[in-house]
């Protein structure tokens, strides 16, 4: 079933905005509504073309009116976010994520026209600890329930989505658990982290990181909206990078910090407005997380175009990150030593 009227939340951010732009470019969709608390940046707005922007707060019951008067049949909930808006943004972020989802779902439940709900969730719902299996499948749960931050928000959001699915069995609900996004254009905690000249890591830990190219993320969200594919799916690129390996690939310097000093260093980076890591993201940097994407490929019918490594390399070259030591210099040094050795033969 091709949707007629699509409502996308979180359009002033990268994913929501570009998703609305893709829907606007699709002639089969009659109307595209984008919702957010603040208007999208101008270049994003231009891309969105015929999509209409509704400045509304999904925490407000007004959203119900928008959904019913516009005859929305498909809701894409892409506003659940890990990136707090500012130093005090964490409480606001939690409210937007959790209360916003509750309101949005209540509005969807009220409107009989809604046929499909696509939720952008995160693989952070699996938590991150030393006692976890190496690879998470969709049926696994976290060993320790995330106690704060984005991961907890996401667990609660998924809980409400499941509740909604029970109350409205006629609605196709697709929950997508994304791994961390990366790409030349998207701005996340992780893209800012790898762009630091000296990248702090936790001493003695090396996380396994699975990434998803932002274009693949958009393609998955688009596919979930245009086709009926209910269920919960892990979404991530193939392959894994170690955190140390990713830092080397980006040509950054690695600064291992003893775990005792991590809160202090984290605080410094937060107050310097460089990177704002929440405690659950700190845990992610210790152990990392890898998800199984068999369901995505078999049931959902999508194979990411970029592997984790390719996506990361695309991010590095797209951002123009200059490595500290030029790979050419290293290769030249290698040749030089070998030539010298050959002369000794």
């Amino acid at each position: 079933m091709t949707p007629k009227v699509v409502l996308v939340t979180g359009v002033s951010r990268f994913l929501g905005g570009h998703l609305a732009a893709r829907f606007a470019a699709n002639p089969d969709i009659e109307r595209v509504l984008g919702v957010d608390t603040e208007p999208p940046p101008r270049d994003l707005l231009r891309r969105m073309g015929r999509a209409e922007f509704v400045r509304a707060d999904i925490r407000n019951p007004l959203i119900s009116k928008v959904i019913s008067t516009a005859n929305v049949d498909t809701v894409v909930h892409a506003s659940v976010t890990a990136n707090p808006a500012g130093p005090t943004g964490r409480t606001v972020m939690k409210e937007m994520n959790v209360i916003g989802t509750m309101q949005l779902l209540a509005a969807c439940q009220k409107s009989p026209k809604v046929q499909k709900l696509v939720v952008k969730s995160t693989s952070a719902v699996y938590g991150s600890s030393s006692r976890d299996p190496a690879v998470f499948t969709e049926d696994m749960g976290p060993k320790d329930l995330p106690s704060s931050g984005y991961a907890k928000d996401a667990v609660e959001v998924e809980g409400y989505v499941r509740g909604f699915g029970r109350r409205r069995p006629d609605v196709n609900v697709t929950t997508l658990r994304f791994t961390n996004f990366i790409g030349p254009r998207i701005d996340t905690v992780l893209t800012r982290y790898f762009a630091l000249p000296v990248v702090p890591t936790v001493l003695g830990y090396d996380a396994r990181v699975q990434l998803l190219h932002s274009e693949d993320a958009l393609a998955v969200l688009e596919r979930a909206t245009l086709h009926d594919l209910p269920g919960v799916y892990n979404v991530g690129g193939d392959g894994v990078l170690l955190l140390s390996q990713a830092i080397r690939r980006a040509g950054r310097l690695n600064l291992p910090v003893p775990s005792m000093a991590v809160p202090t260093v984290g605080g410094f980076f937060r107050s310097a407005r460089l990177v704002d890591f929440s405690p659950d993201q700190m845990r992610f940097l210790n152990w990392g997380r890898v998800v199984d994407t068999t369901q995505l490929k078999k049931e959902f019918g999508f194979t990411p175009r970029w592997t984790t490594q390719q996506a990361f390399d695309d991010y590095v070259s797209g951002r123009g990150l200059k490595p500290f030591v030029d790979p050419e210099t290293i290769a030249a040094a290698e040749r030089g030593i070998l030539d010298a050795a050959a002369r000794f033969r």
């Binding site: 396994r208 894994v240 990078l241 170690l242 390996q245 990713a246 690939r249 030591v325 790979p327 070998l338």
Partner: peptide
Amino acid sequence: ADLLSFARRRIAGDYQIDEFG
């Protein structure tokens, strides 16, 4: 030569790990 190419791979992060690390 092996040693040098190993060192270069390590510095550039040019190696593969599997999903278990």
